[in-house]
Design a protein around this nucleic acid. Structure first.
Lengths: 149, 149
DNA sequence: TTAGATGCAAAGACTTTGCGCACTT
DNA sequence: AAGTGCGCAAAGTCTTTGCATCTAA
Protein backbone atom coordinates (compact mmCIF):
# COMPACT_ATOMS: atom_id res chain seq x y z
CA UNK A 1 0.00 0.00 0.00
CA UNK A 2 1.27 3.46 -0.90
CA UNK A 3 1.58 5.60 2.20
CA UNK A 4 3.03 8.83 0.82
CA UNK A 5 0.89 11.22 -1.15
CA UNK A 6 0.81 10.42 -4.86
CA UNK A 7 2.14 12.91 -7.39
CA UNK A 8 0.02 14.43 -10.11
CA UNK A 9 1.75 12.28 -12.71
CA UNK A 10 1.05 9.08 -10.82
CA UNK A 11 -2.60 9.96 -10.62
CA UNK A 12 -2.84 10.75 -14.31
CA UNK A 13 -1.16 7.43 -15.09
CA UNK A 14 -3.92 5.70 -13.22
CA UNK A 15 -6.45 7.52 -15.36
CA UNK A 16 -4.63 6.63 -18.56
CA UNK A 17 -4.27 3.03 -17.48
CA UNK A 18 -8.00 2.57 -17.17
CA UNK A 19 -9.26 3.52 -20.61
CA UNK A 20 -10.21 7.03 -19.55
CA UNK A 21 -8.91 10.13 -21.17
CA UNK A 22 -6.65 12.69 -19.61
CA UNK A 23 -8.25 16.05 -20.20
CA UNK A 24 -7.41 19.58 -19.24
CA UNK A 25 -10.17 19.58 -16.67
CA UNK A 26 -8.86 16.40 -15.06
CA UNK A 27 -5.31 17.72 -15.00
CA UNK A 28 -6.50 20.82 -13.23
CA UNK A 29 -8.58 18.93 -10.68
CA UNK A 30 -5.57 16.74 -9.94
CA UNK A 31 -3.40 19.78 -9.52
CA UNK A 32 -5.83 21.28 -7.03
CA UNK A 33 -6.17 18.05 -5.07
CA UNK A 34 -2.44 17.48 -4.86
CA UNK A 35 -1.85 20.99 -3.60
CA UNK A 36 -4.69 20.98 -1.12
CA UNK A 37 -3.83 20.54 2.51
CA UNK A 38 -7.09 19.31 3.90
CA UNK A 39 -10.58 18.44 2.79
CA UNK A 40 -12.29 20.41 0.07
CA UNK A 41 -15.93 20.60 -0.90
CA UNK A 42 -16.87 20.17 -4.54
CA UNK A 43 -17.53 23.88 -4.63
CA UNK A 44 -14.10 24.71 -3.26
CA UNK A 45 -12.50 22.42 -5.78
CA UNK A 46 -14.53 24.03 -8.54
CA UNK A 47 -13.49 27.53 -7.48
CA UNK A 48 -9.85 26.56 -7.28
CA UNK A 49 -10.05 24.88 -10.66
CA UNK A 50 -11.79 27.87 -12.21
CA UNK A 51 -9.05 30.17 -10.99
CA UNK A 52 -6.79 28.21 -13.32
CA UNK A 53 -9.33 27.31 -16.01
CA UNK A 54 -12.43 29.50 -15.81
CA UNK A 55 -14.30 27.46 -18.40
CA UNK A 56 -14.48 24.29 -16.30
CA UNK A 57 -18.00 23.81 -15.03
CA UNK A 58 -19.21 22.46 -11.69
CA UNK A 59 -20.87 19.48 -13.31
CA UNK A 60 -17.58 18.49 -14.87
CA UNK A 61 -15.90 18.65 -11.49
CA UNK A 62 -18.57 16.39 -10.03
CA UNK A 63 -18.15 13.95 -12.90
CA UNK A 64 -14.40 13.92 -12.51
CA UNK A 65 -14.61 13.38 -8.78
CA UNK A 66 -16.98 10.49 -9.35
CA UNK A 67 -14.57 8.93 -11.82
CA UNK A 68 -11.67 9.46 -9.43
CA UNK A 69 -13.56 7.68 -6.71
CA UNK A 70 -14.10 4.68 -8.94
CA UNK A 71 -10.37 4.64 -9.59
CA UNK A 72 -9.63 4.97 -5.88
CA UNK A 73 -7.86 8.25 -6.42
CA UNK A 74 -10.06 10.22 -4.07
CA UNK A 75 -12.52 9.52 -1.30
CA UNK A 76 -15.24 11.74 0.03
CA UNK A 77 -16.68 12.13 3.49
CA UNK A 78 -19.87 13.58 4.86
CA UNK A 79 -18.94 15.73 7.81
CA UNK A 80 -22.39 17.01 8.53
CA UNK A 81 -25.51 17.71 6.56
CA UNK A 82 -23.69 20.18 4.34
CA UNK A 83 -21.67 19.46 1.24
CA UNK A 84 -19.41 16.43 1.10
CA UNK A 85 -15.65 16.93 1.26
CA UNK A 86 -13.10 15.27 -0.97
CA UNK A 87 -9.45 14.43 -0.56
CA UNK A 88 -6.87 12.11 -2.05
CA UNK A 89 -7.21 8.51 -1.02
CA UNK A 90 -4.46 7.44 1.31
CA UNK A 91 -4.16 7.32 5.04
CA UNK A 92 -7.63 6.51 6.33
CA UNK A 93 -8.78 8.56 9.27
CA UNK A 94 -12.01 9.31 11.03
CA UNK A 95 -13.91 12.51 11.71
CA UNK A 96 -15.89 13.94 14.56
CA UNK A 97 -18.30 16.75 13.82
CA UNK A 98 -19.85 18.97 16.43
CA UNK A 99 -23.60 19.27 15.89
CA UNK A 100 -23.58 22.77 17.32
CA UNK A 101 -20.59 24.63 15.90
CA UNK A 102 -20.05 22.28 12.94
CA UNK A 103 -16.35 22.09 13.73
CA UNK A 104 -14.66 18.92 12.52
CA UNK A 105 -11.93 17.02 14.31
CA UNK A 106 -9.79 14.48 12.50
CA UNK A 107 -9.05 11.40 14.53
CA UNK A 108 -6.95 8.30 14.04
CA UNK A 109 -8.67 5.33 12.48
CA UNK A 110 -7.33 3.28 15.36
CA UNK A 111 -10.07 4.64 17.60
CA UNK A 112 -12.48 2.48 15.65
CA UNK A 113 -10.60 -0.80 15.95
CA UNK A 114 -12.56 -2.29 18.82
CA UNK A 115 -15.95 -1.13 17.54
CA UNK A 116 -15.12 -2.35 14.08
CA UNK A 117 -14.33 -5.85 15.31
CA UNK A 118 -17.46 -5.89 17.40
CA UNK A 119 -19.72 -4.91 14.51
CA UNK A 120 -18.01 -7.42 12.26
CA UNK A 121 -18.60 -10.19 14.73
CA UNK A 122 -22.12 -9.23 15.73
CA UNK A 123 -23.58 -8.24 12.36
CA UNK A 124 -21.04 -9.11 9.68
CA UNK A 125 -20.92 -5.38 9.09
CA UNK A 126 -17.70 -3.92 7.81
CA UNK A 127 -17.28 -0.42 9.17
CA UNK A 128 -16.16 2.36 6.88
CA UNK A 129 -14.17 4.67 9.11
CA UNK A 130 -14.01 7.75 7.01
CA UNK A 131 -17.15 7.99 4.90
CA UNK A 132 -19.37 9.55 7.53
CA UNK A 133 -18.30 11.63 10.48
CA UNK A 134 -19.37 10.75 13.97
CA UNK A 135 -21.76 13.27 15.38
CA UNK A 136 -21.70 14.80 18.82
CA UNK A 137 -20.79 17.83 20.88
CA UNK A 138 -17.30 19.26 21.09
CA UNK A 139 -15.71 20.25 24.37
CA UNK A 140 -16.22 23.97 23.86
CA UNK A 141 -19.89 23.73 22.96
CA UNK A 142 -20.47 21.41 25.84
CA UNK A 143 -19.01 23.93 28.24
CA UNK A 144 -21.13 26.67 26.73
CA UNK A 145 -24.25 24.59 27.15
CA UNK A 146 -23.43 24.00 30.79
CA UNK A 147 -22.74 27.64 31.42
CA UNK A 148 -26.07 28.60 29.88
CA UNK A 149 -28.19 26.35 32.03
CA UNK B 1 -36.14 8.75 32.72
CA UNK B 2 -39.29 7.55 31.01
CA UNK B 3 -38.67 4.23 29.34
CA UNK B 4 -42.08 3.34 27.91
CA UNK B 5 -43.46 5.10 24.88
CA UNK B 6 -45.36 8.27 25.73
CA UNK B 7 -49.06 8.56 24.91
CA UNK B 8 -50.46 11.19 22.59
CA UNK B 9 -51.92 13.05 25.55
CA UNK B 10 -48.62 13.17 27.39
CA UNK B 11 -46.96 14.63 24.33
CA UNK B 12 -49.62 17.26 23.87
CA UNK B 13 -49.27 18.22 27.52
CA UNK B 14 -45.61 18.90 26.89
CA UNK B 15 -46.59 21.19 24.04
CA UNK B 16 -49.17 23.01 26.16
CA UNK B 17 -46.73 23.36 29.01
CA UNK B 18 -44.27 25.29 26.90
CA UNK B 19 -46.27 28.24 25.60
CA UNK B 20 -46.97 26.59 22.30
CA UNK B 21 -50.39 25.96 20.92
CA UNK B 22 -51.98 22.61 20.37
CA UNK B 23 -53.30 22.65 16.83
CA UNK B 24 -55.03 20.16 14.62
CA UNK B 25 -51.87 19.66 12.62
CA UNK B 26 -49.86 18.93 15.75
CA UNK B 27 -52.46 16.51 17.05
CA UNK B 28 -52.33 14.65 13.79
CA UNK B 29 -48.54 14.48 13.66
CA UNK B 30 -48.53 13.15 17.21
CA UNK B 31 -51.10 10.55 16.28
CA UNK B 32 -48.97 9.38 13.37
CA UNK B 33 -45.79 9.26 15.43
CA UNK B 34 -47.39 7.35 18.28
CA UNK B 35 -48.79 4.75 15.92
CA UNK B 36 -45.63 4.38 13.87
CA UNK B 37 -43.52 1.34 14.50
CA UNK B 38 -40.18 2.45 13.19
CA UNK B 39 -38.52 5.47 11.67
CA UNK B 40 -40.40 7.70 9.28
CA UNK B 41 -39.12 10.29 6.86
CA UNK B 42 -40.71 13.72 6.86
CA UNK B 43 -42.39 12.77 3.63
CA UNK B 44 -43.84 9.59 5.11
CA UNK B 45 -45.10 11.52 8.07
CA UNK B 46 -46.63 14.11 5.77
CA UNK B 47 -48.40 11.45 3.72
CA UNK B 48 -49.74 9.73 6.78
CA UNK B 49 -50.92 13.05 8.21
CA UNK B 50 -52.56 14.03 4.94
CA UNK B 51 -54.51 10.81 4.87
CA UNK B 52 -56.20 12.11 8.01
CA UNK B 53 -56.05 15.85 7.28
CA UNK B 54 -55.40 16.53 3.60
CA UNK B 55 -54.94 20.26 4.12
CA UNK B 56 -51.78 19.93 6.23
CA UNK B 57 -48.77 20.98 4.19
CA UNK B 58 -45.25 19.55 4.18
CA UNK B 59 -43.78 22.79 5.48
CA UNK B 60 -46.06 22.61 8.48
CA UNK B 61 -44.89 19.09 9.18
CA UNK B 62 -41.27 20.22 9.06
CA UNK B 63 -42.04 23.10 11.40
CA UNK B 64 -43.83 20.83 13.82
CA UNK B 65 -41.04 18.29 13.79
CA UNK B 66 -38.56 21.06 14.49
CA UNK B 67 -40.63 22.26 17.43
CA UNK B 68 -40.97 18.71 18.73
CA UNK B 69 -37.22 18.29 18.62
CA UNK B 70 -36.76 21.39 20.73
CA UNK B 71 -39.19 19.93 23.22
CA UNK B 72 -37.38 16.58 23.16
CA UNK B 73 -40.46 14.84 21.87
CA UNK B 74 -38.81 13.47 18.76
CA UNK B 75 -35.31 12.92 17.47
CA UNK B 76 -34.14 12.51 13.93
CA UNK B 77 -31.35 10.49 12.43
CA UNK B 78 -29.49 10.61 9.16
CA UNK B 79 -29.25 7.08 7.90
CA UNK B 80 -27.54 7.90 4.65
CA UNK B 81 -27.51 10.82 2.27
CA UNK B 82 -31.25 10.57 1.74
CA UNK B 83 -33.97 12.13 3.83
CA UNK B 84 -33.68 12.15 7.61
CA UNK B 85 -35.90 9.86 9.64
CA UNK B 86 -37.84 10.84 12.74
CA UNK B 87 -39.14 8.92 15.70
CA UNK B 88 -40.28 9.54 19.23
CA UNK B 89 -37.50 10.28 21.66
CA UNK B 90 -36.90 7.45 24.06
CA UNK B 91 -34.59 4.49 24.06
CA UNK B 92 -31.42 5.66 22.32
CA UNK B 93 -29.98 3.28 19.79
CA UNK B 94 -27.48 3.37 17.00
CA UNK B 95 -27.73 2.67 13.29
CA UNK B 96 -25.57 1.02 10.71
CA UNK B 97 -26.23 1.81 7.07
CA UNK B 98 -24.88 -0.17 4.17
CA UNK B 99 -23.33 2.12 1.57
CA UNK B 100 -24.29 -0.27 -1.18
CA UNK B 101 -27.83 -1.50 -0.57
CA UNK B 102 -28.80 1.33 1.82
CA UNK B 103 -30.20 -1.17 4.29
CA UNK B 104 -30.21 0.03 7.88
CA UNK B 105 -29.53 -2.06 10.96
CA UNK B 106 -30.50 -0.87 14.40
CA UNK B 107 -27.96 -1.64 17.06
CA UNK B 108 -27.76 -1.24 20.79
CA UNK B 109 -26.24 1.97 22.07
CA UNK B 110 -24.01 -0.17 24.25
CA UNK B 111 -21.79 -0.91 21.28
CA UNK B 112 -20.58 2.66 21.51
CA UNK B 113 -19.67 2.66 25.19
CA UNK B 114 -15.94 2.09 24.81
CA UNK B 115 -15.55 4.43 21.86
CA UNK B 116 -17.59 7.07 23.59
CA UNK B 117 -15.36 7.03 26.66
CA UNK B 118 -12.27 7.13 24.50
CA UNK B 119 -13.45 10.16 22.53
CA UNK B 120 -14.49 11.89 25.72
CA UNK B 121 -11.09 11.38 27.25
CA UNK B 122 -9.03 12.15 24.15
CA UNK B 123 -10.95 15.10 22.74
CA UNK B 124 -13.59 16.10 25.25
CA UNK B 125 -16.03 15.09 22.54
CA UNK B 126 -19.40 13.80 23.62
CA UNK B 127 -20.61 11.23 21.13
CA UNK B 128 -24.20 11.33 19.93
CA UNK B 129 -25.06 7.72 19.27
CA UNK B 130 -28.18 8.08 17.24
CA UNK B 131 -27.95 11.24 15.19
CA UNK B 132 -25.88 9.84 12.35
CA UNK B 133 -25.67 6.25 11.22
CA UNK B 134 -22.35 4.49 10.92
CA UNK B 135 -21.48 3.78 7.34
CA UNK B 136 -20.10 0.56 5.95
CA UNK B 137 -20.87 -2.60 4.07
CA UNK B 138 -23.39 -5.16 5.22
CA UNK B 139 -22.66 -8.88 5.24
CA UNK B 140 -24.69 -9.61 2.14
CA UNK B 141 -23.14 -6.87 0.02
CA UNK B 142 -19.71 -7.89 1.17
CA UNK B 143 -20.32 -11.43 0.00
CA UNK B 144 -21.59 -10.17 -3.32
CA UNK B 145 -18.50 -8.03 -3.78
CA UNK B 146 -16.26 -10.99 -3.09
CA UNK B 147 -18.16 -13.22 -5.49
CA UNK B 148 -17.85 -10.62 -8.23
CA UNK B 149 -14.11 -10.28 -8.03
C1' DT C 1 -58.38 39.97 20.95
C1' DT C 2 -53.85 38.88 19.36
C1' DA C 3 -49.80 36.57 18.67
C1' DG C 4 -48.54 32.17 17.25
C1' DA C 5 -49.42 28.63 13.59
C1' DT C 6 -50.63 27.39 8.99
C1' DG C 7 -50.99 26.95 3.74
C1' DC C 8 -49.12 27.97 -0.38
C1' DA C 9 -45.56 28.91 -3.32
C1' DA C 10 -41.08 30.12 -4.01
C1' DA C 11 -36.34 29.85 -2.84
C1' DG C 12 -32.18 27.48 -1.34
C1' DA C 13 -28.39 24.14 -1.03
C1' DC C 14 -26.27 20.42 -3.11
C1' DT C 15 -25.89 17.24 -6.87
C1' DT C 16 -27.23 14.89 -11.20
C1' DT C 17 -28.62 14.59 -15.96
C1' DG C 18 -29.59 15.65 -21.05
C1' DC C 19 -27.82 17.29 -25.12
C1' DG C 20 -24.93 18.76 -28.77
C1' DC C 21 -20.18 20.06 -29.63
C1' DA C 22 -15.14 19.70 -28.70
C1' DC C 23 -11.11 17.43 -27.74
C1' DT C 24 -8.31 13.20 -26.67
C1' DT C 25 -6.53 9.21 -28.48
C1' DA D 1 -11.73 9.17 -37.46
C1' DA D 2 -14.25 7.73 -33.42
C1' DG D 3 -16.23 8.31 -29.25
C1' DT D 4 -15.24 9.96 -24.63
C1' DG D 5 -15.66 13.96 -22.05
C1' DC D 6 -17.18 18.71 -21.68
C1' DG D 7 -20.03 23.14 -21.03
C1' DC D 8 -24.34 24.78 -20.32
C1' DA D 9 -28.75 24.73 -18.57
C1' DA D 10 -32.32 22.39 -16.56
C1' DA D 11 -34.08 19.11 -13.40
C1' DG D 12 -34.13 16.62 -8.99
C1' DT D 13 -34.15 15.90 -3.94
C1' DC D 14 -34.75 17.43 0.51
C1' DT D 15 -35.68 21.30 3.41
C1' DT D 16 -36.44 26.19 4.63
C1' DT D 17 -38.55 30.67 4.28
C1' DG D 18 -41.82 34.73 3.17
C1' DC D 19 -46.16 36.29 3.59
C1' DA D 20 -51.04 36.76 4.05
C1' DT D 21 -54.54 34.43 6.56
C1' DC D 22 -56.45 31.79 10.14
C1' DT D 23 -57.09 30.13 14.79
C1' DA D 24 -56.01 28.64 19.61
C1' DA D 25 -56.08 30.59 23.96
Amino acid sequence: MVQRAPTAEEILSTVRGSDRRVTLAKRTVVEVLVRARGHLTAEEITSAVQRLRPEVSPSTVYRILEEFEELNIVVHSHLGQAAAVYHLAGAVHGHLTCEHCKQTIEISAAHFDALSKELQKAYGFQLDRHHVALSGTCARCRDNQRATR
